[in-house]
């Protein structure tokens, strides 16, 4: 046995009886050793995502909404700001597909133009909370100690204030006399970020706490890697998945919150066109002309639903076990 034993010490090095055998043996070993081409986890997730009907349906809806926000004129040639009081509260007809509201505005055109405010608020609020939450969460989770205590307690303070209450106080105190469109959008985004980051921070922190004890983090420390390098190339890429999932779902939630704030009259305000404002305008007419409220409400629900479905699909792809 001693003769063969030296021979067979290595993984690839199997003693074959002849050359044809060797070719075959190598073939089998390679096939078993690792399968196919290089596949990263992200590629695996993408492959999973592509198979999901939920993903395709939600992605198509999101694409339509984003197009509406970017280029509303693609969808309608009507002017949403052109009111015709004589045709106030007209029911849906061939000229005005969704009918007209109290001011005689075309509801279809306003629904299309209203997408912009909702998408802007949703996207920027999500970006803001994700960036602020991720950075603070990583610092708290990785460094622990005083940094953790400080960040977590500050987060708790904001977390403890109900979003709507905070937003009402904030927006009603800092609103200028005649804010422009982007200024209003910015204020709403700011409120959502200020009160929304702690949930992302907590998520990132717990995710980092799970990643930190992994031996590959220790291995990087053992090699003398700097904390910045460890956070950037080892901790962040492995900890970010849940944040992506929750942020996607949150995007839908923020659109709904924006509508709620606008409905209450403290978010976006006329003349800005937004679904929330439209719902608010339609409420008094609910009995007589329900279509005034119905159409923006449907748009709003579909947009929220699309992002939440998208988030679900992404979660399934990142973590197949959670289903």
């Amino acid at each position: 046995m001693t003769e063969t034993s030296r021979h067979v010490t290595d993984g690839e090095d199997v003693a074959p009886t002849d050359d044809s055998q060797r070719a075959m043996v190598d073939e089998t070993l390679r096939a078993e050793g690792d399968i196919g081409e290089a596949r990263s986890l992200t590629q695996d997730a993408w492959r999973q995502l592509r198979r999901s009907p939920l993903f395709w349906v939600s992605a198509a809806m999101i694409t339509v909404f984003v197009l509406m926000a970017v280029a509303p004129s693609l969808f309608t040639s009507l002017d949403p700001a052109k009111g015709d009081l004589s045709r106030s509260r007209e029911t849906p007809n061939a000229a005005a597909w969704f009918g007209r509201d109290l001011q005689g505005y075309d509801i279809f055109a306003r629904c299309i133009y209203g997408a912009r405010a909702s998408i802007l608020v949703g996207v920027f609020a999500t970006l803001g909370t994700s960036v602020v939450g991720s950075v603070t969460g990583m610092l708290a989770g990785y460094f622990g100690g005083l940094a953790d205590t400080l960040i977590s307690r500050i987060g708790d303070i904001f977390f403890a204030i109900p979003l709507l209450l905070g937003a009402i106080v904030f927006l009603s105190s800092f609103r200028g006399d005649d804010p422009g469109y982007f200024q209003v959008v910015f204020q709403v985004v700011l409120v959502l970020v200020v009160f929304g980051w702690p949930s992302i921070m907590r998520l990132m922190r717990s995710s980092v706490l799970q990643i930190k004890p992994n031996d590959y983090v220790s291995a990087a420390r053992a090699l003398g890697a700097s904390p910045v390098r460890i956070l950037r190339s080892h901790v962040f890429p492995n900890a970010v998945a849940p944040v992506i999932v929750v942020s996607t779902i949150n995007l839908g939630v923020y659109i709904a919150v924006e509508a709620t704030l606008s409905f209450l009259g403290i978010g976006l305000i006329p003349p800005t066109i937004s679904w929330g404002v439209m719902v608010s305008d339609g409420l008094p007419l609910l009995r007589a002309s329900p279509h005034v409220l119905l159409f923006p409400a449907v748009f709003l629900s579909l947009a929220v639903l699309a992002f939440i479905m998208f988030g679900d699909a992404v979660r399934d792809a990142f973590d197949p076990k959670s289903r």
Binding site: V8, G11, E12, D13, V14, E32
Partner: peptide, 23 residues
Amino acid sequence: ELYAIGGLPPNLTRMPPGCPFHP
């Protein structure tokens, strides 16, 4: 002296033809 069996056990979805241990 330790004798090491080379290679790895086969993938059960793609069994080699013949004796599964032959590779």
